[in-house]
Design a protein around this nucleic acid. Structure first.
Ligand SMILES: NC(=O)c1ccc[n+]([C@@H]2O[C@H](COP(=O)([O-])OP(=O)(O)OC[C@H]3O[C@@H](n4cnc5c(N)ncnc54)[C@H](O)[C@@H]3O)[C@@H](O)[C@H]2O)c1
Ligand SMILES: NC(=O)c1ccc[n+]([C@@H]2O[C@H](COP(=O)([O-])OP(=O)(O)OC[C@H]3O[C@@H](n4cnc5c(N)ncnc54)[C@H](O)[C@@H]3O)[C@@H](O)[C@H]2O)c1
Lengths: 290, 290
DNA sequence: ATGCCTTTGTGAACGCGTGCACAAAGATGG
DNA sequence: CCATCTTTGTGCACGCGTTCACAAAGGCAT
């Protein structure tokens, strides 16, 4: 019990809206670029264009941090870089562990963008004994057995999960138990964590599916628009299309054509059942233990 | 002109809210897991728990797709899988190209989650001549020169960018010019695209920075809460902390201590200037061509 | 010193997303 | 066939986020 429920109650940080926090890194990046070009000041209009947002939004975002601009001039680049860095907590060093050093984990370990912003890869952890000791990106991979001590010894509070989906929840629990309070999850799974632990997920499949939705919509509108009468021959190169068979027209309760057992036969799934299940994604066959 | 401006006007798809679209893949994943376990039906409460959302939200989401549930029973798993798949456009096959086969690009190419949901890696493209012909994940890498023909020949409409930040905008423009209308960008850059092209970005640095913000907030609260009088010795292991020097107290216009040139000296950055600049992230020194 | 011109900071309006709470629908048992 | 019980579908209210628009602030030229 008490493990689940991502009960996001008014987690009102203090003043800074979540949406603003999510944009600060964007501003910081644009500002850093300006800083490297020795640009002394920048207006909200210019910076907003660089960050790809509305200038009023940017000004309001900055207003939450205080009044750092000069009317008639703009914002001092260096000063703003510092203020945002401080607000985001980047003025200190954050040791990070990556768990699951496979294709993705190794790529992450090799990623230079970590160190450039105050994040330091403190350890690489994998369950495969064959991986132990092998250097990846100049760091020796350590075995999962040492997870707890690594986290404790290095004061790690941020963990990255890049294991298969089936292992993610378990790894997550170990991380949290060891003291990690922020997790970046790459596995296609919904993680259950106690209150006070932040989880952010990066999910390639979801992003692609969202794109596919809009892509289909565009194609549909286009087709519906200029050819409600023409055949299915679209002007654009025809997309190779496998089409799923309709599994059955609206299942009308009492088993019609398709015959899903009379309801009670095939385990009517309990709440606990579902809660535990961390849906796989084609990654692993994943028959979760009850 | 007309290249920039991510002018997201009321892009009202038709009826389905964007927030709902973003959750559909989540539901689909949970439903697929249930389907594999041969669970015939599921209630909104159960499915919501599995997907980590509020049950009312889930029901409202489904209501946009139509009335697919049965009161007193729940939703037919197979039927719902089909309906959501159809809505997301996953009943057809989407050929995808990955541009930039480095650490990340190779990991993506090896990712099994692609094929499992109707996405097919049609080609891997890299600018490095040494990469050409080399097989990655069973597919021969092709040179950037062939980008246009590959996209055209395969009817590719979705492109994944995994190049360094400095090359992303250029690659993006070539993809769009060749017919790609959806882009998933892994490079830490704001991409400018014409109207009608969707861009989604996955940015590791941003995610980590957001986590760091909350992490800092937690640490701050904790410290302020139980030890406004006690020393800085927190119960948790002390975090190693490098602290950035304050670059200068509030720059009071007329150069105070720090001496940023008198404003006009170091190129007061024009709008066009900023718009073109695609801020680097520590990936590449990135001196963008003016 | 004074007025002009640029740009910030923010009040206010609006729209979207979320979650509560409940009436209606339909299955199920007698 | 009717009563009961479960669960959907949604009306409604609320809060967050976005955007407009403008007064105030401050630099700069004269
Ligand atoms: N490769 C990608 O581009 C990509 C993209 C999106 C999501 N993902 C997700 O990221 C995860 C990793 O993907 P991958 O391609 O690197 O897979 P992979 O199989 O190459 O690597 C997984 C690694 O995790 C290790 N591992 C397994 N169980 C573990 C445990 N309990 N503790 C510690 N380590 C454990 C394995 O030994 C292996 O080294 C998967 O969940 C995948 O769905 C990958
Ligand atoms: N590695 C990660 O975990 C990670 C994480 C987040 C973001 N990113 C971003 O993803 C991108 C790629 O990262 P990486 O670690 O794979 O880098 P990498 O240097 O290993 O790979 C980049 C690849 O892109 C190719 N390339 C360069 N210019 C090109 C062009 N114009 N057209 C086609 N291909 C081109 C290079 O030949 C190289 O193979 C970077 O922008 C990086 O910031 C990487």
């Amino acid at each position: 019990m008490a493990t689940g429920r991502t009960h996001r109650l008014p987690t009102r940080s203090r003043g800074i809206p979540e949406a603003t926090v999510a944009r600060l890194p964007l501003y910081l990046r644009a500002l850093t670029a300006l800083s490297e070009r020795s640009v002394p000041t920048v207006s909200s209009e210019e910076l907003a264009a660089a960050a790809g947002v509305n200038s009023a939004k940017l000004r309001k975002d900055f207003s939450y941090l205080g009044s750092y601009g000069t009317r008639g001039v703009g914002y001092d680049v260096e000063y703003l870089v510092y203020q945002i860095s401080r607000e985001l907590g980047l003025t200190q060093d954050w040791p990070v562990v990556i768990v699951g050093i496979g294709n993705l984990g190794a790529a992450l370990a090799n990623y230079g963008g970590f160190a450039s912003r105050g994040f330091r890869v403190a350890a690489l952890i994998d369950a495969d004994p064959a991986m132990a000791g092998k250097p990846v990106a100049g760091i020796a991979v350590q075995h999962t057995d040492e997870l707890e001590s690594i986290i404790s010894d290095n004061g790690v509070s941020i963990g990255v999960i890049a294991t298969p989906a089936g292992a993610a929840q378990q790894v997550c629990e170990r991380l949290v138990a060891a003291g990690v309070t922020s997790i970046l999850n790459f596995a296609p799974t919904v993680l259950s964590v106690p209150d006070g632990v932040d989880v952010r997920k990066v999910d390639l499949s979801i992003e692609l599916q969202i794109l596919a939705f809009h892509e289909q919509r565009k194609a549909g509108e286009e087709a519906a628009q200029d050819a409600a009468q023409a055949g299915a021959t679209a002007p654009a190169p025809a997309r190779p299309g496998r089409v799923l068979p309709d599994p059955a027209a609206r299942p009308t309760t009492a088993g019609a054509t398709t015959g899903p057992a009379p309801a009670a036969a095939t385990a009517p799934v309990t709440s606990a059942d579902v809660r535990d299940n961390q849906g796989p994604d084609g990654d692993v066959p994943a028959v979760m233990p009850a």
